[in-house]
Write a protein that binds this DNA or RNA. Sequence first.
DNA 1: CGACAGCTTATTGTATACAAATACCATTCG
DNA 2: CGAATGGTATTTGTATACAATAAGCTGTCG
Lengths: 224, 224
Amino acid sequence: MSRASDRAYNHIRNMILSGELSSGEQIREEALADLCGVSRTPVRDALRRLEAELFIRRNESQRSFVADWSLDDLEESFQLRAMLEAYAARRAASRITWDQLARLRSHNDAIRQAITVSAPDIPKFLDHNRQFHAIVLEAAGSERLSGMLAQVTEQPVVLRTARQYDMENLKRSHYEHDELIIAFDHRDGEWAAAVMTGHIRRAFHAYAAAHSSDTEINRTDEAA
Amino acid sequence: MSRASDRAYNHIRNMILSGELSSGEQIREEALADLCGVSRTPVRDALRRLEAELFIRRNESQRSFVADWSLDDLEESFQLRAMLEAYAARRAASRITWDQLARLRSHNDAIRQAITVSAPDIPKFLDHNRQFHAIVLEAAGSERLSGMLAQVTEQPVVLRTARQYDMENLKRSHYEHDELIIAFDHRDGEWAAAVMTGHIRRAFHAYAAAHSSDTEINRTDEAA
DNA sequence: CGACAGCTTATTGTATACAAATACCATTCG
DNA sequence: CGAATGGTATTTGTATACAATAAGCTGTCG
């Protein structure tokens, strides 16, 4: 992460995610170079990556703009993620090792500890949740799949989703992980895929419920 | 395509697909720059794109190598493609316009004409086949999905697949397109998805059968 | 007024020089 | 003889200057 292009990448990405760069805004390479304290060369590198990840759009004459994501875009993103993670779970079921299974159990245990207290430890939940899903992906053993999933799994979105989780959702999340482990234990790919699909879909609706109450006129919490 | 980086991209990509650059071979930016007649800057651009598309791998110290694809890798690629194209078909079923449906019919008609002769016109088949699938993707209306599919749909592979099609496979391909159109007509996403899945899976097996016999032939050639 | 041509400015694309990192090789020491 | 070490060559990373292209503006003409 010490290379200038990586610093530029992270810097720009964070500026987009934090809203420092607003949606639809044009971004100029030289301005970003100044902001990141590097030259245009690594900035261009970073922009290409961010463009591939759809953080940035370019018009017909190659000017760059911050992409604006509608709720529909996000839902589609979650839908793709559900499909890909379900596929990963299906593959993982027949390939997962005992060691990987043990690590899944350990992380889900940590998640249980993080939420079975009066004030749930969200950062701890997030960290072990991330590692849990990383192990499933590792067990699936497909680099191409990993790359695609990275494109639709924005950790900041996951974070905002988790922040919106009530205790009920947190418990369900832990329970679903548990069921996934049991499906893996039985080497039942279809079961694992089904559980994973539901797991991601529920996450989307939790996110959407919170997001729409942000956007729209006050809307009392309803069952997610 | 007039920009130097695009020329470099196509040039390098073709060299990889034609075997001019062999699997596992290290590639140096300057050498490619000379071959393409441009400087290293656009070559680096092109390499980043090819790396994202898994044509190229880089080791821990950033040296680039031509990726070597096993038959397993290819199968996984086809599997992902089947899943994504099925998803596209499912989405398209509820969004497709009458105009798009008409264009699908027209292209599949052209395909029928290309193959219902004694010597099938493969280039014509390929062209209309490509456009057929492009329209389904257009009807699905998801840029992210389009981008992902581009990553797993290498036209040269499609070409080699089609070259291996016997008349039976060509007819089946046309028939499956026809069934897809009927499913769209009924706005039946699940049907469309199922047809598409089979369509791609069959294509993989046609390719795999031809590829394994290719490999044997190559081995014989090398021995001789 | 409106539209359009031509100029000016802004922005991206490319080439090149140099810096940094890494691999390769030879030499030495145990 | 093998392993470690140092220096050299190779390769990639970054900065910068310049070229090409597109946008914006202004003034003129219909």
